[in-house]
Amino acid sequence: MIGFLLWVIVFLLCWPLALLALLLYPIVWILLLPFRILGIALDGVFELLRAIVFLPARILGGKPR
């Protein structure tokens, strides 16, 4: 009996949270999209800098990892 009452309480409390998460997920995803694009751009910049720094070693015969 107590288990059933706990199940009913959890059901009544959790379905609004699940609906709220379903509604807020696309909004949060759109809000975070510029940060993902910025991260991709910064990754490209750091890879370019790494290639420029290691270029002399590669020209002199260093083996890439």
Rank of each mutant, 00 (worst) to 15 (best):
W7Q: 01
W29C: 08
F35E: 09
G3D: 02
F35R: 10
G3K: 02
I2E: 05
R58N: 05
R36I: 09
L48V: 09
A51W: 15
G39H: 05
R36G: 04
A21Y: 13
L19M: 10
F11H: 01
F54L: 13
G3C: 00
D43S: 12
L20V: 10
G44T: 01
P56E: 09
P34L: 04
R58L: 10
W15F: 11
F35Y: 10
F11L: 12
L60I: 13
Y25C: 10
L6A: 07
L42G: 02
L5K: 03
A51N: 08
V45S: 04
A51L: 13
P26Q: 14
V8K: 02
G61D: 11
F11W: 04
A57V: 10
F46I: 13
F46S: 07
I59D: 04
L38K: 12
F4D: 03
A57F: 15
A18Q: 08
L13H: 00
I30F: 12
A18E: 04
V10S: 02
M1V: 11
L24C: 12
V53T: 09
C14I: 13
L5I: 06
L42D: 07
G62K: 10
L31D: 04
L55G: 00
M1H: 08
L31C: 06
F46N: 05
W15N: 00
L17K: 01
W15S: 00
V10Q: 01
A18K: 04
A18C: 12
I9D: 00
K63S: 08
L32I: 11
I2W: 05
P26G: 07
L31W: 15
R36L: 15
A57E: 11
L22R: 15
V10D: 00
A57Q: 14
I30C: 05
I37F: 15
L22Q: 11
L19F: 13
E47Y: 09
I59F: 15
A57H: 06
I30L: 14
P26W: 08
L5H: 01
V28K: 12
L49Q: 08
I52P: 00
W7P: 00
L49S: 08
L42M: 13
F4Y: 06
I27C: 02
I2Q: 05
A41L: 12
R65M: 07
P64F: 07
W15P: 00
I9M: 04
P64S: 14
L5G: 02
P34A: 06
I27G: 01
R50C: 04
A57M: 09
